[in-house]
Design a protein around this nucleic acid. Structure first.
Length: 276
DNA sequence: CGAAACTCCTGAGCGC
DNA sequence: TGCGCTCAGGAGTTTC
């Protein structure tokens, strides 16, 4: 699933398209998260000037027009030779001068939209700060956590608080910071918020440095797990020994999402963490 | 306003 | 070999 590091890696990998002219757009399946607009064809004939990322959105600047793409749960963008046969779930094909860009998304949770529009302005307008930029720090996070009684994990995953922290990074950051995922957000101390902030940045930066290795679904030609998956300490490790204390990891469902944690390293009871 | 449930979708994994 | 089931989950929408 594309997390922020995968989206950033995708952005960088598409730089060969810069300054190429978009010859045509072919829509094979318009039924994404929102319908692909007919006006997508207005991009034809324009040249790609820049590719930016905001949260998990990619924004393609084509002269004065902007294309907004979100990869959802299962989306990917691939540069291919035009002679390569279309794969199942290749929903859009952007034909540039030198190569083709194909939007592939089996689950169709992604979207391809022209920006700005009322919808895209709403989508981008409610986003919180980027986790790797200056607007995100312990003060900001702590203030946001203070006003919420929901679990700290669900607040971390709220895009209005900070963008780009999905289930994997929230799970890992909470483990690293030693905070139980079900802790009410407003019980998190400022120093814990500092640890969380540091852990979120650390995990995102590490993953970007590894090229945003695909996580759960990735298996290489020899059937081995992806490298980044082997660096995970908590996500998907229910029943396995904690890498710190060997205690068996447990799993909760928080806001409909699997949440693994170490009951020793991430205590929930108040007296447990006050002693430390 | 916040919180929690619900929704979209397909492929993988499993039991039979 | 294949059927039916469950699960995975980003994030907008709905309901309270």
């Amino acid at each position: 699933m594309p997390e922020l590091p995968e989206v950033e890696t995708t952005r960088k990998s598409l730089e060969p398209l810069l300054h190429q002219r978009l010859e045509s757009v072919t829509v094979h399946h318009a039924g994404l998260r929102w319908p692909v607009p007919e006006s997508i064809h207005s991009l034809e004939g324009h040249s790609l000037q820049a590719i930016q990322r905001r949260a998990k959105y990619l924004i393609f600047q084509l002269d004065h027009l902007q294309l907004l793409i979100h990869l959802g749960m299962s989306g990917s963008l691939r540069l291919t030779d035009p002679s390569e046969p279309k794969r199942k779930h290749d929903h859009l094909i952007f034909r540039f001068e030198q190569s083709e860009l194909r939007f592939h998304d089996p689950r169709r949770f992604g979207c391809v939209l022209l920006h700005p529009s009322p919808l895209t302005q709403k989508l981008l307008g409610t986003l919180g700060p980027e986790p790797l930029e200056g607007g995100f720090d312990a003060d900001h996070l702590w203030q946001q956590l203070q006003r919420r009684s929901a679990s700290v994990k669900s607040v971390l995953m709220d895009n209005a608080v900070v963008v780009g922290v999905g289930n994997i990074y929230a799970t890992e950051a909470l483990f690293t910071a030693g905070i139980h995922p079900a802790r009410p957000a407003n019980t998190v101390t400022h120093s814990e918020a500092q640890r969380l902030t540091d852990a979120i940045r650390q995990h995102l930066n590490t993953s970007i440095a590894l090229g945003g290795s695909t996580l759960k679904d990735f298996v290489n030609a020899r059937g081995e797990n992806g490298y980044f998956q082997q660096t995970l300490s908590a996500y998907g490790r229910k029943g396995l020994p904690c890498m710190r204390c060997q205690t068996s990891l447990q799993e909760l469902r928080i806001a409909q999402r699997a949440s693994c944690f170490c009951p020793e390293c991430q205590p929930l009871a108040i007296d447990s963490f006050i002693e430390k």
